[in-house]
Amino acid sequence: MTSAEVTPSASDAGKPRSEMSRRIGRFRRNRLAVVGLIIVAIACLSALFAPVIAPYHYATLHQGQEFLPTGSPGHIMGTDILGRDVFSRVLYSLRTALFIAIVAELLSLVISFVVGLVAGYKGGKIDQWLMAGTDVMFAFPGYLFAVLLVAVLGRSTWAVILALTIASWVGLSRLLRAQILRLKSMEFVEAGRAMGATGWTLVMRYMVPGAMGPVLVSTSFGIPANMLAESGLAILGLGVAPPMPSVGTMINEGYRFVQSFPHLIGWPVVVFVLIMLAFTWVGDGVRDAFDVDES
């Protein structure tokens, strides 16, 4: 730990920072991406503060006020077959969906980092074994895992999270491994090695930041993919247990009444699709910011 060792990397750190700000600038010039980010932020905030914002609890029944149309006083999006407030339920379903999607993505990031880094950096036998493992997981039908996990653990939020994590870590691990392999031969990493950085210092200081771009992109696409998968599980009756609403169950229930009370399916679909779109725009923005060279 001499100062001589710190100085070069400190001056080196200047470069990534300016690189970073350049990328942020590029992202901000992408109008759709910024709009997407705003929508995502609003969605996350409303999900976070759903208990405060929602006029009612998601399970509160209003007898005698069943099937109120959109725009009814006290129920801006109307009510469902049990007189439950659709707006509140949409908010809570968003809360569930986002929580599950984000936590599952973070978990799978952690797993993939470990697997991808170890496989990519260490190489050799470990690499071969880990990649063989991902081979099996690729061939293994993801939703079977989900079905069985939810069956074993019960219909809880964590069961769904675990199911989604297991379904998604494989791809990310391979991506990270590929990144590490690419970076291994890159000049600045070799420079770092030449300057005496070894082992994990090399990985954490030089390689991980370098791999962040693709990881960020993959994450911003991974979250909506998780939301999609969660809604699918819910439709199969394998999502979070009712009465906690989820986008999938709301759509499923709403579809039963689409020919009589279309607002029951309309609102969850509009909100859901909008958020999916927003995430994709953000993902596009991030990808452009990281991947595409200026031309």
Binding site: F67, F257, F261
Partner: peptide, 9 residues
């Protein structure tokens, strides 16, 4: 058929 829908239609 869904009784609620039939009632509406």
């Amino acid at each position: 058929a869904n009784a609620a829908t039939v009632e509406q239609r």
